[in-house]
Amino acid sequence: MKLIRLGRQKLKFEIGEEEKELLFQVLLFYPLVPATHHRLNQDRRIPDPNGNQQLLESALRDQQQENRALLAKLLKQPRRFTQSEGGYYVSFSRPEVEWLLQVLNDVRVGSWLALGSPLHQLEIQKGMSKPKAQKILAMDIAGYFQMAFLQALQKYSPTMND
């Protein structure tokens, strides 16, 4: 995925046909991180820790639902992707890039949790079970697209125009 144009509001990329397929496949895994995964604190001196934890989990579940709806909308917009010589052109607004980063990271972290939170990077090996290999692949692909978006955002200068 290659950044073509970077504006104040939108980022335009060129994405290969296979890359597009991989992006769609990996986004379809969302959400993977359970809302109960995050702990607000382990400090007993904090008032009402259970109540606050429940509020946090409820807010995270709401956010996952909202993201899922946005994602479904994005994946059903064929006009967003227009044919290019090397594949497709696609534009995302800055808020869309922001939530795509969150969604991709959910897939990356959720796959990692499902793999048992390994301390070192796992590699696909011969004889490995298909679900395990799929999770390793999902982690790598999500990370690849995260880096593409992050590198694009780092090039942003406030003086740029759309």
Partner: peptide, 23 residues
């Protein structure tokens, strides 16, 4: 303060970072 700190921890959790609140 508690409310603001909780808000920020929640924001970090939205991005799936491992963050906590401590007194």
């Amino acid at each position: 303060g508690m409310e603001k700190a909780e808000f920020y921890v929640h924001q970090l959790h939205k991005y799936n970072l491992h963050a906590t609140l401590e007194r």
